[in-house]
Write a protein that binds this DNA or RNA. Structure first.
Lengths: 226, 226
DNA sequence: GGCTACTGTGTGACTTAGTCACATACTGTG
DNA sequence: CACAGTATGTGACTAAGTCACACAGTAGCC
């Protein structure tokens, strides 16, 4: 049950479907959900789990990833504000176990919705339904582009792109260990270390423990495309 | 418009949602769809296309795959009777371009539904909606398991599994070129050829032009798991 | 039959990736 | 400053992908 009008305003602002939905639904929605807080680096879903709730992220991010037999990881996608762990939704709608892992990265504030409400509302309110479809579709194309990456693209180019995407244009600096990068890309730490070292020797980046600074975004960009 | 009562019986039998749906919807459904025939090896969707129709497969199969920069292919999943090119549905619901390719493998007989009907019915009929959610979710987990395969599993083991999955227990023979196998697995023809040759030398299979016969399913199975 | 074009397969040499077993370096805590 | 814990570096090796080209089976055609 959510009552604070400031919070309600924020929610309506962030979750577009609440703007399109009719007033009765919004009332019901606010009456049946609650806000949850979760610290950073907490597991959210385990592989094989059955999901009992759907979380809509208000603040913070979560990472959804798989673990291979060898212990290597690969990130499927991240969930940010306004999004939801749609794999959960997908599991709810198809009643299958969750095929991956999810963990909070930053502290998370999220709306919690019970599976029964998820299903009920999807039969009742078009705005909610559209939101669900939208998210699942989004994730499907996310995951498909992950397939493309791992199946076809060279690690050095993927890494170059990754560095560009994870830094601002001005600061050009990112906090990350080689292991965390490897886990995102689905490769091994040694490979990342070697390629980074190579980039450094070419003057594209500079490396310090736990952080990387881009020195030549332009040349790095041409590396990433070929 | 579909009127033939035999055909209607078959459809209701094959598409479960028609059994759950109310009579009015079924009437509407049959009134607004038509049956299409497509020969084998015809392109269905191109990457980047906007989908104008959804096809529900009655008979035959289609393959949904991606092509990498280098020309290599990887199969994301196949669509069989009772299923639908749900990527299309996903594109329809999220209004995004199609991120892959689809091609008929065997001759296809399919129900054609316009995008507007897809959307309209999803707002109107729960059985149809559930069918869509179910399919998209299914595909999402399909594609996720493809990620797992390519990111973590060795090609020889994936190939062993592939051979077992694509042969009956009794005949143990399959028609396929090394290239077609490579395109399914997302690797290159040479790699498949070499591994197959290796399997042959170990007495697990025998190879003839365009076909493979399994000689020792049991040992092949232990190869596939490790 | 024999010629030809086409498709399918084999192979070596080379590059890129991933694995394993370590060595080494940095950082915070007491 | 010593220590434990985390982060990175490196060589040797295996697995996978690329490239160039050889060669074998098949079908059509005269």
């Amino acid at each position: 049950m959510i009552t604070d009008p400031t919070v309600i305003d924020e929610l309506i602002n962030q979750f577009h479907f609440l703007q399109c939905a009719d007033a009765g639904f919004v009332r019901q929605f606010l009456g049946n959900t609650k806000i949850m807080h979760l610290p950073a680096d907490q597991p959210i879903c385990q592989q094989g789990m059955h999901c009992s709730h759907l979380a809509l992220v208000i603040e913070g991010t979560a990472r959804v990833y798989m673990i291979g037999e060898n212990g290597r990881e690969i990130t499927l996608y991240r969930i940010g504000p306004g999004e939801s762990c749609i794999l959960t939704a997908s599991c709810i709608m198809s009643q299958k176990p969750f095929p991956a892992f999810a963990v909070s990265e930053q502290p998370i504030q999220a709306l919690i919705i019970s599976t029964s409400d998820v299903v009920r509302w999807s039969n009742q309110e078009q705005a909610w339904r559209d939101y669900l479809f939208q998210l699942i579709s989004e994730r499907l194309s996310n995951v498909i582009s992950v397939v493309e990456e791992v199946a076809f693209r060279r690690v050095d180019r993927r890494l170059a792109k990754y560095l560009l995407q994870h830094t601002d244009n001005d600061s050009s600096r990112m906090q990350a260990t080689h292991q965390s990068i490897a886990s995102d890309l689905g490769t091994s730490r040694e490979v990342v270390s070697r390629i980074l070292k190579d980039f450094e020797q070419q003057g594209l980046i500079s490396i310090t423990r736990g952080a990387i600074t881009l020195e030549d975004r332009h040349r790095l960009n041409s590396k990433s495309t070929d």
